[in-house]
Design a protein around this nucleic acid. Structure first.
Lengths: 119, 119
DNA sequence: CTGTCATTTAACCATTCGGTTGACAATAGG
DNA sequence: CCTATTGTCAACCGAATGGTTAAATGACAG
């Protein structure tokens, strides 16, 4: 459980705050992709897409290996885990509300059951 | 399991990409805080901090209730859950590497055990 | 009514962002 | 060698970001 520099989380969350980049991450989850492949789905110049890839790379979310003239990208999932680690610190706050709701429903059921037993 | 608009995730991740705002979230996890309280830890004008709170609010991460002249903020954890939901789509990619490591270790153990059985 | 406390708004500034185009570099395939 | 293909780099643009200060709003206290 390493404590990461705040700056890293800045970069990771920033990288994920753009839907184009999130889509690229989704694509990379299916397997390695060249920059050109990643650019393909978007109505955007290759240079534009290339910039997005760079942002992902600088956030550590993507690793690139140059093979000939094509740059092959692959997802660096550990980095996603680090963002997730930060978020899960607060997990109890969103599960708690569900638990509370559950408790309320149970209490209601119990009340109904009592009514049913003594009409 | 609601599919959220991409735009919402944009706002949530963007809001979390700043360490000041993440610190505010952390603070709000301890309980409700006024804008002034939230601003206190930072070497920043109140107006500046107020802007950060607004960013959190617009991302839906914070709900504000005005009580007299003080604005009381509280964490809207469901919103964090939505970011987490996106990330967990890729959970298997970062747990997989751990599993693989585990498998390797187990295989090694098995090999050692075999050696031990037939010396 | 007056002042003061909590906060927002407005205007401004430098920097970053997301995007473009055009030039460049390197590799692949005739 | 020549020419595509793959991708980056540099310069530029408008919009957004993170910050400031100064003024405005709104509620409470005397």
């Amino acid at each position: 459980m390493v404590e990461l520099p705040a700056h890293d989380l800045d970069l990771i969350f920033r990288a994920l705050s753009d839907s184009t980049r999130r889509a690229m991450v989704a694509r990379l989850a299916e397997g390695e992709r060249s920059v050109g492949d990643l650019a393909l789905p978007f109505a955007m110049s290759l240079a534009g897409a290339s910039k997005h890839v760079k942002v992902l790379e600088e956030a550590g979310l993507v690793r690139r290996s140059v093979r000939g003239r094509t740059h092959i990208c692959r997802l660096e999932a550990q980095r996603l885990a680090e963002a997730d680690e930060w978020l899960r610190r607060y997990e109890r706050f969103w599960t708690k509300s569900l638990d509370t709701l559950e408790a309320l429903l149970k209490a209601e059921d119990a009340a109904n059951a009592r009514k049913g037993e003594q009409p």
